[in-house]
Each structure stands twice: as C-alpha cells, then as structure tokens.
Design a protein around this nucleic acid. Structure first.
Lengths: 333, 333
DNA sequence: CTGAAAGCGCTTACAG
DNA sequence: CTGAAAGCGCTTACAG
C-alpha cells in the first residue's frame, strides 16, 4: 500500500494540489476557497487517513516543528524529569522534541548540533559544556532560537534559564555552620562548567564569611566520566583520612555514591555528621535519616524554557535575550 | 549566511552535482570517478564545512536514519536507563533516536505513531499499550521494522524483547513463602498490559502451588495516572486494615510510594514484614534496611533491541520475528 | 570517467 | 474562486 500524497487527494477531489494545500494549512478562507470545496476536500482527507509528509513540508518551508534538546545524560533523574516536562509542554504546542545525551563529550556534542542542524530543527535547548562556544555562536548567528539551561557559557549572549547555584551552595554551607559544623567537606566533579564552579565558589565564600579557613583536603573533585567504583574509593579514602563533620555533595549522583560508602563503612549520619545533596532525588527523602537537599524548581525551569523558545519561534524579529535565574530551595530533612 | 548546498560544492569544484553526490555517499569508486576529482571535492567539502541536508535526502530516499522510541514515561528510571543505552548503541551505528512518552494514553500514543510516520522514521521501538494493536499492525503491513519491548501485545506477530515477568514474580513470592510469610500483599497498577497481568498471575500461581488461598483484600490495583497522594492514601488504608507480613510492589515507583507510607506510619521492615520491588532503583540499595528487588537485565535488553532493529533495517527481505525473553534476577538485600 | 534531468511531496508567488 | 509552475536539496537511472 503506497502512502497517499497530496496529489492523490487532489485527483480524488477533482481540484488542484494548490487548493488542497491551502485547505490543509487553514488558509482556505483566506484564499477564498468555496465552502463546498473545503467540505469536500476535508471529507476526503478524513476518510482516506491522509497525513501530509512532514519531510517534504520541512524541505520546502525550512522548518520542522522539532526542537532539539541536548543534555548531559538522560538517565540522570534531574535531566529526565526536565525532559519529560519539556516534552509535555512542547507537545501541547505542536512541537516535538528530539533529544540526545552528550555524556560531557565535546566531540559528541558538536556532532549532535550538526545533526540537529542538518535535520533543520527549529530551535535548540542545550545544557552546554565548555568547548561548544563557537558552535552555539554559529547557531545564534544563523538566527536560530537557542535556550541554554542548567549551565551557561561565559562570553555568549544567549537566553538562559537556571538556578542560583552560588547562592544555594552558600546558604547550605551557612546552614551547616549554624549547626556548629566547622570541618565541612565539598564533594564535586571536575567538569569545568559554570554551574559546578559556582558551587565551589559558594562554598568558599560561605567559609570565608564565617572565618573558617579553606582547607583543600576537604574538597574532592571527582573525575567526571570515571567508574563509580573509583569514585567510591576516593570518597572512602577521604572519609577515612580527613576529619569531617559535614559533607555537601555537588550533584545527586555523587551523593548517592557517597551514601553507599557511608553505609558500607558504617559511618552514621546525625549527631557528628551532616550531609546535604545538590539536586533532590527520591533516595534522599526515603533515606534513614532523611538527607537534606537543594531543590531546583524543575517545573518552573521547564516552563521558562518553553516560554522562551516559543516566544522566539513565533517572533519574526530578533528578541532580546533573557536570563532567568530561579532561587533553589533547601529542603531540610 | 546561507547554508551551503550540494550545488555550491559542485560549482566550486567545477563538476556536476551528480559527481559530488556520488563522492559524499561513498559511491565514487564504484562509479569510477577519478581519484583527482575525489580528492578535490573532498577537500572543498572539508574546508567549507558543508553538511548534506538530511531532510532533502530523506524526501528523496524515503528513509531518515532515525529510529522512533515510544515509551511510557521518560522520567521513570527504568525507561530512562533503557533509553540512554539504546541511544548510545544506535548512535554508534549512525542512527538517531527520537523519543516520546505516551503516559499510557492511547490517543497520545496513536498521535505519536502518526507523527513518526509522517517524519518517515526508519523503525519503531515501542513499549506498547492496549489499543495500539491496529496501528502497530499497520506499521508491520507497511513493512516497517517494529520492536516491542517490556510489554507485548497479544495477537500481534512482532519482534519482542522482554523479561520473564511471570517467573520472576513467581519466584519472588516463593521466596517470601520460604521465609515463612503467608499474608503476602501485591501492590500493582490497573494498566491492562501483559507485563503487569503476568505479575499478578505469577503471584497467584505461586500462592496456589504453596496451598495458600488467594485473598483479594491483599491485592491493591492502583489507578495508573492518579496523583501520588491518592496512591499513598490507598496503601495506607491497606496497611492499616489488612494484616500483611510481606509486600511485593509491581513497579519501582509504587515501591517508592509504599516505602514513604511505611516510613510515615512507622511500620518497620524486617522481622515481621518483608518487602520486594519490581525493577530496581537506587533507593532500594540505600534504604535501611536494604530492599530486595527484581532486576531486569537492562543492558542485555537494550542490546537485544538494537540488534533486532539493525538486523531488520539492513535486511532487504522480511525476516522472521523473534521473541527474546530474558530471565529477571532477584537481588536479596 | 562524468553530467543532464526526473522526481521525492510539499508551499507559495503569480496569473487569471 | 482556483490552478500551473517553480523550487526546496537531494539521489539515481540513463545516456554518452
């Protein structure tokens, strides 16, 4: 069974493909096609189950109704939740999402952008990594809507949606200090992106403001793409050799690994040790004792991203870029 | 800056677009294009950064190098992990994945299939729901590669990759009974799909084989799309009113909700209550006490899916459908 | 060894 | 009120 084309419909209805096209695209009234013809063609379309070929439409119009979403890792719950929310909202507006994970690999990320380009996606939602500046600048130069989220890239003037990581980290460390903690450890990753470095800076500033000396032995920068076993070994060593009364984990997967290590080594969280995680996760609520977490407002972030990109997509002229920064919330457990 | 087309390259090189096309598609030697021309054209392509327009290519060839992935919910960790693995493997073979969540909504799922159709995806990987039989049959009739996974649809002769849910459930219930449990509760959902009903059947058969009467008060079927609060209320009521010494949760998100309820009501897991979850989750390993779980072999499942679909994609002739069922593993904690 | 031309299925400026 | 025709950027059968 060959799939139907606009021509088949036109022949069947005894009109030109132009007329059919106008009707499909809701331009019929505009173009003053007679009601009778509209009715007839619509009936034939409905009965035949004809669906316009989007590929042909894309080739002709240059757009695709697809938004490309580039994230670090879809299996990370922060990203998968955001992805679900974005997909949902985009879908309601007639846009589809095509996504891919970069795994923090610059080469893969560049390829993804190229692939999205050659597929003529209408807009880009990117959680960027260092090294993509040029590629993203090129998209901007080509007048493509680009929304960065979670992380921004210094030197690029783009739309950005994120949370105030510096402030959230600062406050979490301050809350540790208020509890009387002095030997506060930060376990973070070595990825060189703004949202991670901001967490280190928030940590340092909070210590400084409370007259606590920065001790680099308390800071562990885990290599991004290493095996979890390796990460756990490093943490175990830190916990064994350095005296610590509080730990802030800069990502939820680091916190999960850390909790496994603490469980295994039998170190109890509570009177002598406080723990907090960046980005909430079901594990933390259910853990005994509950683990405090810094929560980014996922729903608001997703909504802001979609609003920004739709605004760009529907505007003929270049709009001013917006930076939308949401406060993150500390959930004490 | 206009994007380059094959014509620009042809003009620049002083050859026809036919020649350029042959070179791009690796058919140059085949078509006996001279080495000198090949070199020259390749150089120009590399220097100009020209990327072929995939939309035009798709329109002409009828395929897209895109595989459509239709799942229940990308934010469910079972699906997001599978999605990541599939994306990874597909990517290495030059295929891209475009995904969407059905949210167990038949209408949305049908729309997604239609959208994928009109985007001319090369193949479909679907975790199906009841009501899609006709649409999927249509894809098969159109000779499109279709792989169902996680759930199968009775009456459809397709490729299928999944786990033996009946056996896994049977064994988990049997292990409860071996521990001396008699009042075993099953908390499941009301979605009418094979992989969920198989879990109920495994539960019933295990009870029967061990001469334990089936008691419907012990079985809770939670409505799929309801709010978590509602689910928790129902569970709380069950735990309060019905005597239970073991609980099998038929999905990981139900188990997570259930653990929250148990935590809140102060019911301890251990001597008087065993708990097991279907599909593992980080929560279960870290929970105190650890929660046993039924683990599907995600890596093997993803690999089998990709193998099957690539096999179909690269074969000119119709291949026999395969059903690949992996055993699930019980992790006792 | 290489190219002119048809055609994939649409949209739209133009003409009547 | 409606249609013929050009063109989006490719691939490929055919011709030389």
């Amino acid at each position: 069974m060959k799939t139907l084309s606009i021509k088949d419909i036109a022949v069947e209805a005894g009109v030109s493909i132009t007329t059919v096209s106008f009707i499909i695209n809701g331009k019929a009234r505009n173009k003053s096609i007679s009601e009778a013809v509209i009715k007839k063609v619509e009936k034939i379309i409905a009965e035949s189950g004809y669906k316009p070929n989007q590929i042909a439409r894309s080739l002709r119009t240059g757009n695709s109704n697809i938004i490309g979403l580039i994230i670090e890792d879809i299996s990370n719950s922060f990203f998968s939740r955001i992805a679900r929310l974005i997909e949902d909202k985009a879908y309601k507006k007639g846009y589809k999402i095509i996504y891919s994970s970069t795994e923090n690999n610059v080469e893969k990320a560049k390829e993804l952008i190229n692939m999205f380009k050659s597929r003529k996606v209408d807009g880009y939602i990117i959680s960027p990594i260092k090294g993509l500046e040029e590629d993203i600048q090129q998209l901007l130069t080509d007048q493509k809507p680009v929304i960065l989220f979670d992380r921004s890239l210094p030197g690029l003037d783009t739309n950005y949606v994120g949370a105030d990581h510096f402030k959230a980290t600062y406050e979490s460390i301050a809350s540790f200090i208020k509890q009387g903690r002095r030997r506060i450890s930060l376990i973070t990753t070595d990825i060189d992106v703004a949202q991670i470095t901001a967490r280190l800076e928030g940590y340092q500033k909070a210590l400084e403001d409370h007259d606590i000396a920065y001790d680099e032995n308390l800071v562990l920068k885990v290599h991004f793409n290493q095996e979890e076993d390796e990460t756990r070994l490093q943490m175990e060593k830190l916990f064994r050799t350095v005296e610590t009364d509080a730990i802030l984990f800069a990502t939820n997967y680091l916190a999960i690994s850390g909790l496994k290590v603490l469980k295994q080594t039998g170190q109890k969280i509570g009177k002598n040790l406080s723990v907090m995680a960046y980005d909430d996760h079901e594990v933390f609520e259910l853990h005994t004792p509950g683990i405090s977490a810094i929560q980014q407002p996922l729903e608001e972030i997703a909504e802001a991203i979609i609003q920004l990109i739709l605004r760009q997509l529907s505007s003929k002229t270049k709009l001013d870029n917006q930076q939308i920064i949401f406060p993150a919330k500390i959930v004490q457990r």
